[in-house]
């Protein structure tokens, strides 16, 4: 929905050549993959399966093609989710997705700060404590601590971004987070072009 067009426009803004597609062949031909998404985990996986995209994404990711997940696209990276029953994810990284373990209002919506947990070229010009825009009810729990890129405090500390080799994914919306968000997308696009 809106998210898709917003991500497309934001990537174009930072100079990327973007194609919105459901075609597995187009994913194979691309230099990088971006998986946005707002909605339910199970529905999203069903749609990816129906279009024959699950295998393509797994194979291309395993072959080292840069992958960027946003919001639900972060959740889908992991092996399974407890969102409305148990669902299998893409399993690009080990770990699972659970309901945000907070006593505060869920969904967590609005601008919140991220703590940068490790260095990454994607966050080259992003300062620790920068605010980004979040809309989500679930949070990822990676098996490997080394995959954690950012964390955020919302009545609990949760993982707000992960990165492992060619796989990066963000719980917040870079395409809706003004200049700092665009800088992440620019860093991703430039990394692909380099």
């Amino acid at each position: 929905m809106g998210n898709l067009r917003s991500v497309e426009k934001a990537l174009e803004k930072v100079g990327a050549d973007v194609e919105v597609t459901r075609d597995p062949g187009a994913v194979r031909r691309a230099d990088a993959m971006v998986l946005p998404g707002v909605g339910a985990f199970g529905d999203a996986m069903d749609n990816l399966r129906k279009r024959g995209l699950v295998e393509v994404i797994r194979e291309e990711a395993a072959a080292g093609k840069p992958f960027l997940g946003i919001c639900l696209g972060l959740d889908l990276v992991f092996e399974e989710s407890e969102e409305h029953g148990l669902h299998e994810g893409l399993g690009l990284l080990p770990g699972r997705v659970e309901l945000l373990p907070t006593k505060l209002k869920v969904p967590h919506i609005g601008w919140n700060q991220v703590r940068i947990e490790k260095e990454s070229p994607l966050l080259a010009d992003v300062e620790d404590g920068t605010f980004f825009y979040f809309v989500h009810s679930y949070a990822v729990v990676p098996d490997r601590e080394a995959d954690i890129l950012c964390t955020t405090e919302y009545g609990c500390r949760f993982v707000s971004a992960v990165e492992h080799e060619n796989i990066a994914a963000f719980q917040f919306h870079p395409e809706k987070s003004s200049a700092p968000g665009l800088s992440i997308l620019r860093n991703f696009a430039e990394g692909v072009a380099a």
Partner: peptide, 8 residues
């Protein structure tokens, strides 16, 4: 707006 605006 979607072309030029990168906040909600």
């Amino acid at each position: 707006c979607a072309e030029e605006l990168f906040i909600p």
